[in-house]
């Protein structure tokens, strides 16, 4: 009887682990094992289907010798830098303005944030139409009388990447706004009152006290937007399909087309590993600090 009791109580002790195990197994397989698998493929000469030979760094060498990949990496830098700066700046500005105890705050917030609910495919479709030089903004402005106005970035290989930035910022700056606003609302009122009693002006209070206190929110925004930037895929596909030519190629679209369209699975895997390492370099330190603070707090 004693043995039976200890068995059932031991089972009860293991129950949580047993219940969580399938999820853990799925995640270990579909995240970590699959990453490893991709890594393995990146060291093989796989083309249309995986072959498990050892080709050393051949695929990485081939990847970095591909001009298209160079375009993709350069584009990623341009896109991420502008996307981050603009989304963060606009988001912060809107959050601060919205925090001025204004009327219709709920409505405005809803307006700034609704693009986040849309698929990037929808966003891309809409902006492709808006920026269409024949029928879109350019035509409207021309018809208003400014006939020399041109806005044909979307068909201009030099400028096309900036159209991706515009659509991306439109979609994501509301997200930055939401996080900043939550951060602002979390700031203790008395700090601001104290500064006010000392005679600090409102702009000064924002510059010297409030914005520095938004540092955690700022960090979150930057990390999450970087992540969105690196994995941007559908937006480019819907807006420019990587074109004109390969002018708006990003690592994400490069990986996809190498793997599924050009039968260069090894190169695709190598590019995926490059992407993963970039994300990991940003995310792992972030998660580490977040988790540690959470445990301390």
């Amino acid at each position: 009887m004693n043995a039976a009791k200890s068995f059932s109580s031991r089972l009860a002790g293991w129950l949580p682990r047993i219940v969580v195990a399938p999820s853990l197994l799925i995640v270990i397989v579909t995240v970590y094992l699959f990453i490893l698998w991709t890594g393995v493929i990146s060291f093989t000469s796989s083309k249309f289907v995986p072959v498990y030979d050892f080709a050393g760094l051949e695929q990485f060498i081939r990847l970095w010798a591909t001009p298209r990949w160079h375009t993709a990496v350069a584009n990623l830098f341009i896109f991420s830098a502008l996307f981050l700066m603009l989304s963060t700046g606009i988001g912060l500005l809107m959050a601060i303005l919205l925090d001025q105890n204004i009327r219709a705050e709920g409505f405005l917030r809803a307006v700034y944030l609704y693009p986040m609910a849309l698929s990037f495919i929808v966003t891309g479709t809409a902006w492709k139409w808006i920026m269409n030089p024949g029928l879109g903004i350019q035509k409207v402005v021309n018809e208003l009388g400014w006939t020399s106005f041109t806005f044909d970035w979307i068909t201009d290989p030099k400028m096309a990447i900036y159209t991706v930035v515009i659509a991306g910022v439109w979609q994501s700056s509301g997200f930055a706004m939401a996080i900043f606003l939550a951060g602002l609302r979390g700031i203790d009122n008395s700090v601001i009152k104290a500064a006010q009693i000392e005679g600090a002006s409102l702009p000064l209070i924002y510059r010297q006290i409030i914005i520095p206190m938004l540092r955690p929110a700022m960090l979150s925004v930057i990390v999450l937007l970087s992540y969105i930037a690196i994995k941007s895929f559908d937006l480019v596909l819907a807006l420019t399909n990587g074109g004109p030519g390969s002018a708006t190629e990003l690592p994400s679209t490069f990986m996809f087309s190498a793997t599924f369209r050009r039968n260069q699975m090894g190169v695709g895997a190598a590019s995926a590993i490059m992407m993963l390492m970039t994300v990991a370099a940003i995310i792992i330190p972030y998660l580490y600090s977040e988790l540690r603070e959470r445990n301390n707090g």
């Binding site: 990453i35 698998w37 991709t38 994400s252 996809f256 695709g268 995926a272 993963l276």
Partner: peptide, 8 residues
């Protein structure tokens, strides 16, 4: 980044 698991 889901590209890292697409092939497997």
């Amino acid at each position: 980044p889901y590209q890292a698991i697409l092939i497997p």
